[in-house]
């Protein structure tokens, strides 16, 4: 009996059931806190026609950029893209469709999705292209745009530590979108640097409670740095 033990024994098992045409929610900001091994496994599996929801799309040859190489992504929902040439090329060729969403709206849409809230009003984007075709309503003399929640078939998340029950802690700014994505996947898969016995972590320090986590795996990470900046 596995009970609350969320551990799986391989990356193959971690992404079992991922099929063509599905929507994937991916944690990470730039290359910080990205589920790099799960992304590599999606590339190995070769699933196609994927919709990917993530703030960015990696770089050429790393992170979500890997999934562009075999044209596995057909649609991307993101706030900032184009750090990769392949992305630009596929966008211009019409092979890739992109929905640009303000970063805060992206975060809140996923948060809402995980929390069972179908839509919310926000001032962000009012009067801009982002609001085109969307309902606008006035509250207390200010205009707000109706934004719809986002959920996905599979969420891929990078944590720092987890216990065997799938209670997850993130490290520093590698938190970013990860806890949000974790709440909004029909299946949520978390990869971490270390798995400890349940009961070892302080319950008050947990960022993502195990209720959101379906599968848990321990991996090793390259953690590539996008802008290496040091002080003199």
């Amino acid at each position: 009996m596995a009970g609350f033990d969320k551990r799986v024994s391989s990356y193959e098992e971690a992404l079992e059931g991922l099929a063509d045409g599905m929507t994937i929610l991916a944690g990470g900001f730039g290359l910080c806190g990205i589920p790099e091994n799960l992304i590599a496994e999606i590339k190995r599996r070769g699933n196609r026609d994927l919709t990917v929801v993530s703030n960015n799309c990696g770089v050429d040859g790393f992170g979500l950029g890997l999934l562009l190489e075999d044209r596995q992504i057909s649609r991307m929902i993101a706030s900032y893209v184009g750090e990769n040439k392949l992305f630009e090329q596929q966008l211009l060729n019409g092979e890739l469709e992109v929905e640009l969403t303000p970063q805060g709206n992206l975060a809140e849409r996923v948060r809402a999705g995980g929390a069972g809230i179908p839509a919310f009003f926000t001032a962000t984007g009012y009067g801009t292209q982002v609001a085109e075709g969307k309902e606008v309503r006035e509250f207390d003399g200010r205009n707000y745009v109706l934004e719809q929640a986002i959920t996905g078939d599979i969420a891929i998340v990078k944590g720092w530590k987890a216990d065997t029950y799938g209670n997850v802690i993130y490290r520093h700014t590698a938190k970013n979108f990860n806890p949000l994505m974790a709440t909004a996947g029909k299946i949520t898969v978390v990869e971490v640097e270390e798995i400890v016995e349940a009961g070892t972590l302080d319950p008050a320090e947990i960022h993502t409670p195990g209720i959101y986590v379906d599968r848990l795996i321990c991996g090793t990470f390259e953690k590539r740095i996008e802008q290496r900046t040091i002080r003199a």
């Binding site: 970063q103 975060a107 996923v110 520093h172 990860n178 740095i225 802008q227 290496r228």
Partner: peptide
């Protein structure tokens, strides 16, 4: 690598800093 700013540059946290998820940040 786990400590960057919105420009994706490596940074440090000052005294009294806190770190939150993207929804909380916005």
């Amino acid at each position: 690598a786990d400590m960057i700013n919105a420009g994706k540059q490596t940074v440090t946290a000052r005294t009294g800093a806190s770190i939150v998820d993207s929804a909380e940040s916005f």
